[in-house]
Amino acid sequence: MSVLLEIDNLHARVDNKEILKGFSLTINEGETHAIMGPNGAGKSTLSYVLAGREGYEITSGTVKFKGKNLLSMSIEERAREGVFLAMQYPVEIPGVATSTFLKHSLNSIRKHQGLEELDTMNFIKVLKQKASELGINQDMIKRPINVGFSGGEKKRVETLQMSILEPSFAILDEADSGLDIDALKVVAGGVNKLRNDKRSMLVITHYQRLLNYIVPDFVHVFADGKIVKSGNKDLALELEEKGYGEFIGNKY
């Protein structure tokens, strides 16, 4: 099994406040890792830093993705190399149809990978098929992306994007927030379908509930800017029962 992502002793700050304080994690191909932690631990910061969002200052540490220096790549380069971030709050883009957005996205990535760009006809064919697998109706892919979508619809469309773009590494940032149990099952089902021995995932959540549906290979407790404990899926249950207090010295 080869290493996909290697984060080593990462320190990052926002507005001069240190959020990541020596974060290290190695993810192999095909593995699904869950990161659990209380609010304010820096979980979203971690996902933004990995995606390359501006406003986060890396003060030390390294991140290697497929052996390359991830931190020196632009946001879109990371995406094209296979990093996908399913957002906690996907943003609305008025007037831009979901299908249009996704076509631009897919073709940018295909171009980077030296593949032929899909024309509208072929793209729509792929899109329709994947959408129906996720229970997304044809109407929705014509609507402007995320505009007026319910929480469940947004998360479902994030999952749809993942299934179309086929990233090698997907970060799911609070994929269950705003979802009722039925919607959660649909999203988790979609995610599980995408799991294979090449694709890795990082599931960020502060509830154990999601991990009943997306069962991780490893669970890490994230507190105060770094991983304080790692284990298998049972660790999540333990956390659910005892709370985070034990791991972080009752600070929260």
Partner: peptide, 17 residues
């Protein structure tokens, strides 16, 4: 950021928006 995270270059993103 959302567009770029999906692989779309900044200028193309602006034009799309």
């Amino acid at each position: 950021f959302y567009c770029q995270q999906r692989g779309i270059e900044e200028e193309e993103a602006v034009s799309l928006i």
